[in-house]
Design a protein around this nucleic acid. Structure first.
Length: 517
DNA sequence: TCTGGGGTCCTAGGACCC
DNA sequence: TCTGGGGTCCTAGGACCC
């Protein structure tokens, strides 16, 4: 084990929620909950203000609403988070080429491999503090940093540092620090393993270490037992590895209401297969094993897979395999979730093509057509419709997105400028007009079909240098439509649409709103 | 109003091959 | 005539992580 705490673990604080607060001045200091807003949604991230009420990740949004009804509820804006994440990861790479991202908001960095390896714990600390300050400046977001001589301890340290802090674990102090912690603190020990260990009277890391490797292997199996024992005794030699190639790509949808119609189920599988291939192609990969995932009405989940003779990125091949797999699955009783994935990924090369067209067999073989280079990067695609997959009664047809305005979504108005959707329903949409660098803005309620209102890309968190003047306040603005959501608004500059415009009743009958007050 | 979506890794059994 | 001993691939399921 290295003598200096030169492995750094970075974890952005309540990342999605903090990014939303940074982006939306009116939400700063308020409870913000980011996650799925449908009837089956779960919380992805809750701001610290919301955590006070007991809201946490993975909780159902419904429960969060009971605990914290006054919070702002927002759908995730991954394009913004990716944008911020790229800035963060780039700054980490300035510390060392060995950067291992774990997710959009988390990464390990091996400072020992960098241009200025710390020679002491104090130097490591100084590097970490400089990093936190630089990140705050670049993104306006706070981060927590852990420094230690191993990955596990660096992560443990950043956990202790939260929020907005830094903790260094001095080499040599590892075991005494770990000893009293619950086994759940060890990476790889989840609810099931913790329960296993509890039944054997093992609750703390110290008890796990005392149990000995043989006993842990007996309880948990070879690989898991060995690894838990090593981690419990503070041994962790796992290197920081940059750029690991992905091994699978998958997409899945949970439906607001269980699907019963077999034809609809099949149509959804076809749609998912298409989305999966879009992502596969955007990544420049191909895959050999197609996986279908089905979660039934009772939450029981099964997977079926089929391995082709060679890797493919042909939508028809993946679609047909997925549909074949579905044919072998009983869906009576209803389907809650469907997923399609591809594994056994390869970089698609000419040789792969030949291999695939190789010797006779029964496998479905089609030479994948020329791949258009035009990268429609799946994840960053605008996706203004964002129709919840299950949007009740949505025919599932192509342009089915009737849920046009989602809470949290960025918009631009021809008169009022940039803003975000606070709520919508009953043919109206409530927009707060503000930008990351503006003062908290005001809310206006508009018609859902206001022709001057359109979806927009997320603005950067930090005002671009020499950027435009803050749109909304710079120019004379006609009188607002409203304060609170009142009568169906009809604006001054707003063309009165013909009677009963498309009021899109299918868009969440209950209406939805980002914040109640 | 229970339980998202995207991944990784491990285990275990059977097929198949030498 | 009653049963070897690997190794690898495929499939299915489950734990875990963010």
């Amino acid at each position: 084990m290295r003598p200096v705490p030169s492995i750094l673990h970075l974890d952005m604080d309540a990342f999605y929620a903090s990014a939303e607060q940074a982006s939306k001045p009116s939400l700063r200091g308020k409870a913000v909950i980011v996650g799925g807003l449908g009837p089956r949604g779960v919380v992805a991230t809750a701001s610290y203000e919301a955590r006070v009420f007991g809201v946490h990740s993975a909780m159902s949004t419904a429960q969060a609403r009971r605990l914290c009804p006054h919070a702002a509820y927002l759908t995730p804006r991954f394009s913004l988070y990716r944008q911020v994440s790229e800035v963060v990861m780039q700054m980490l790479r300035e510390l060392s080429p060995l950067v291992e991202p774990l997710s959009l908001d988390e990464a390990f960095v091996d400072l020992a491999a960098g241009p200025a390896p710390p020679a002491s714990a104090a130097e490591a600390r100084a590097t970490g503090e400089r990093l936190r300050a630089a990140l705050l400046e670049a993104t306006t977001l706070t981060a927590s940093v852990g420094l230690a001589a191993s990955k596990m301890l660096a992560k443990t340290a950043s956990e202790q540092a939260k929020p907005d802090g830094l903790v260094v674990i001095e080499p040599g102090t590892e075991r005494e620090l770990l000893a009293p912690m619950p086994v759940r603190a060890l990476p790889g020990v989840g609810p099931a393993t913790a329960e296993q260990l509890r039944r054997s009277g093992i609750h703390t890391v110290a008890e796990a270490a005392e149990a000995g490797e043989a006993e842990l292997v007996r309880l948990l199996g070879k690989a898991h037992g060995t690894s838990v024992h090593a981690l419990a005794t503070g041994q962790d030699d796992r290197p920081v590895v940059a750029e690991r190639e992905g091994k699978s790509i998958s997409v899945e949808d949970t439906f607001d209401v269980d699907l019963h119609d077999r034809t609809r189920v099949r149509a959804e599988v076809v749609r998912l297969a298409g989305r999966c291939v879009d992502r596969l192609r955007a990544a420049g990969r191909s895959g050999r094993t197609v996986v279908l995932k089905v979660r039934r009405y009772d939450f029981s989940t099964l997977t079926r897979s089929e391995t082709l003779r060679g890797p493919t990125d042909d939508p028809a091949v993946v679609r047909e395999a997925a549909v074949r797999l579905l044919d072998g699955v009983d869906t009576t009783g209803g389907v809650r979730l469907l997923g399609v994935g591809v594994s056994g990924l390869a970089d698609f090369t000419q040789e792969d093509l030949f291999a695939q067209a190789g010797p006779a067999g029964t496998g479905p073989v089609t030479a994948a057509g020329s791949r258009e280079a035009g990268g429609e990067e799946a994840g960053t695609r605008p996706d203004p419709s964002g129709a919840a997959p299950g949007a009740v009664g949505a025919p599932g047809g192509p342009g089915a997105g009737e849920r046009k305005w989602r809470p949290g979504q960025d918009v631009r108005h021809g008169v009022y400028g940039a803003g975000w959707v606070q709520g919508s329903g009953l043919g109206r949409v409530t927009v707060r007009f503000e930008q990351p660098w503006s003062a908290p803005g005001r809310v206006r309620t508009l018609r859902g079909d206001d022709p001057l209102l359109e979806p927009a890309d997320p603005p950067p968190l930090v005002r671009p240098a020499g950027g435009q003047p803050p749109g909304p306040v710079a120019r004379p603005v006609p009188p607002p439509l409203s304060g609170p959501p009142p009568e169906p608004p009809t604006g001054p500059g707003e063309p009165r649409p013909a009677a009963g415009g498309p009021s899109s009743p299918s868009s969440s009958p209950s209406g939805s709103s980002a914040s109640s007050p």
